[in-house]
Every structure is written in structure tokens, then in C-alpha cells.
């Protein structure tokens, strides 16, 4: 009995610590945009607040007005949507086809190939390959091209996406496909009618993962898009950051919030509809 009570107390204490750890950094993001003259301090925005009494600040919508008036802020969000939707669609489509084939057909050297690509991708998507990628983009005339950027981002995300999706596919029973096959379904019909619906949660998870990756990617668009009208929110954030050598906290906090909301909504939608999880997990 005492053990049980202690166990309960320990459980809730641990959960509380975890909750605090993950919530603390987020507090600023949900308060600062609504306060007049935000600082790094977390203050509760209240109408009429901020008159010397610590912990509160005057509530205001002005920061949002300022962001709306910024010439590149909202268009950059639209650019982010274009880039991440395009990349996610391409990643999911190509990775699903490839993962399916790799899961079902024994191609020689399959596993080694996957691991090598995974290794390369984790390096190339970092800083190491920015020079060759830039030169490549110049050669292929992909500078300032959204399509070019989408292709480059897709190439970087594909290995991990294939790796994770293949795991999903490996854990779905084959008899569904065989059954469809005996009824005369073609391989593409089998993929459309049977495989895609079965691994839909996996596809959704990979889509969210891809969107989140592109949504936050700064280096590649910074490198490859010089036209400020095409730049996504990640790049625009840094123009706010360094304005006049000092961070403009009004714009930064508010834009940061606006910039965060879409991915959060997307995550909530997907996790509600399909469940956001790495289905069978990555096994072996």
C-alpha cells in the first residue's frame, strides 16, 4: 500500500518535471507577442497590466499589426507552405514507391544501400555539402527556383523517409497483397487499393516529418533563393533577428508565433486523423 502510494507520487512528480521542462521554453512564445514592448522576460499580457507590478505587461495586438505591415512577413509564410507542401508530397510519393519495392522485392545489396544513403543524407543535409550543392544549383540553373529547391530538399530527406517507411511496409502482412493479386489486381492497383490504405498512418507521419523539416530549414533556402520575395519564413526570421544589429523582439516573437502555428495545426490534424506514430516502430 505504502509502496503503491509512493509509486503514484513518484509517477506524478516525474511527469510534472517532464511537463515543466517541455513547457518552460514555450511560455515566452505564447506571451511575448501579446505584450507591448516585449523583453526576454515572460510576462502575462493583461489589459492595463505592466504598471510596475512584476510579472504582467500591457496587452496589445499592435505587434501583429506590425507583422502584417512588414512587406515580406506574410508572403514568406506562403513561400514556406509552397516549399514544404511540395517537398512533402514528393517525398511521400517517391519514398512510398521505393520503400514498397524495397520491402517486397529482394534487390541485391538493398540493406547496405539504405544504410549508406542514410549516412550520406545526415551529412549532406548539414553544412558540409553547401558548396557543391550551390555549384550544382548554378550549373543546373536552379538558383532562385522553388522547384529546384524542392528537388534538392527532397533528395536530402528521401533516404531517411524510405528507411522509416520501409519499416512500416515490412510490418504489414503480405497476404492482403497476395489475395488482391489472385483476384487479378495489377501491382499499381495493389499499391493504391491495399498498401496505401494500410500504411496511411505511416505516410501521414512521414509527411509531417518532411513538412516540419522543410518548414524549419534555413540553410538551403538561404543559399539558393536570393530573391527575397521567394524566401520562406525561416530566412525572413533572421532578417528580423539582425535588424539594426539588435533583435527586434516585437516582430520576432510575433512572427515566430505565426510561423509556428501552421505546423502545430498540421500536426494536430494528422495525429487526430491517423495517429502520429512510428507504427511498428523501427524494428529488427
Amino acid at each position: 500500500m505504502i509502496r503503491f502510494v509512493l509509486g503514484r507520487i513518484g509517477f506524478y512528480a516525474l511527469v510534472a518535471v517532464v511537463l515543466a521542462f517541455f513547457t518552460l521554453p514555450l511560455l515566452w512564445l505564447v506571451t511575448a507577442p501579446f505584450t507591448a514592448d516585449p523583453t526576454y522576460e515572460v510576462r502575462v499580457p493583461l489589459p492595463g497590466g505592466g504598471r510596475g507590478d512584476g510579472g504582467t505587461a500591457a496587452f496589445t495586438w499592435d505587434n501583429f499589426r506590425a507583422v502584417l505591415e512588414h512587406p515580406y512577413a506574410l508572403p514568406s509564410l506562403y513561400n514556406s507552405v509552397l516549399l514544404s507542401a511540395g517537398t512533402a508530397a514528393l517525398v511521400v510519393l517517391l519514398a512510398a514507391l521505393a520503400a514498397y519495392a524495397l520491402s517486397r522485392v529482394r534487390l541485391p545489396g538493398r540493406d547496405a544501400l539504405l544504410y549508406v544513403l542514410l549516412l550520406l543524407s545526415s551529412i549532406i543535409t548539414g553544412t558540409a555539402a553547401i558548396v557543391p550543392l550551390f555549384q550544382l544549383a548554378v550549373e543546373l540553373d536552379l538558383i532562385d527556383s522553388r522547384l529546384g529547391l524542392v528537388l534538392i530538399l527532397t533528395g536530402g530527406l528521401l533516404p531517411a523517409a524510405i528507411f522509416m517507411l520501409k519499416d512500416f511496409m515490412d510490418s504489414t502482412p503480405k497476404s492482403y497483397e497476395e489475395s488482391a493479386r489472385v483476384f487479378g489486381a495489377s501491382p499499381l492497383q495493389i499499391v493504391r487499393h491495399v498498401v496505401v490504405p494500410l500504411v496511411r498512418p505511416g505516410l501521414a507521419t512521414i509527411a509531417v516529418w518532411a513538412v516540419a523539416n522543410v518548414w524549419g530549414n534555413f540553410l538551403m533556402p538561404y543559399l539558393l533563393l536570393s530573391d527575397v520575395e521567394k524566401q520562406p519564413a525561416a530566412v525572413i526570421t533572421y532578417t528580423l533577428y539582425t535588424e539594426g544589429g539588435q533583435a527586434n523582439l516585437r516582430l520576432l516573437s510575433t512572427f515566430g508565433l505565426l510561423y509556428s502555428v501552421p505546423v502545430v495545426l498540421m500536426y494536430l490534424f494528422v495525429s487526430k486523423k491517423y495517429g502520429f506514430r512510428f507504427h511498428g516502430g523501427i524494428k529488427r
Partner: peptide, 28 residues
């Protein structure tokens, strides 16, 4: 299971591998 066969399996993986080859393997 799905009667893909090696040829079609190769076709399924080709687009992904092509992008990976150009934008990942080549820069590497």
C-alpha cells in the same frame, strides 16, 4: 507478394534513387 518482379521494383525505386543520386551522392 504483389507480383512486382525485379523490373517493376527497379522502376518503383528509380525516381527516388535518381533524385538521391543527383542531389545527394553527387555532392557527396
Amino acid at each position: 507478394a504483389a507480383g512486382l518482379g525485379r523490373v517493376r521494383a527497379a522502376l518503383f525505386t528509380a525516381p527516388a534513387l535518381a533524385l538521391i543520386a543527383v542531389f545527394l551522392v553527387f555532392p557527396a
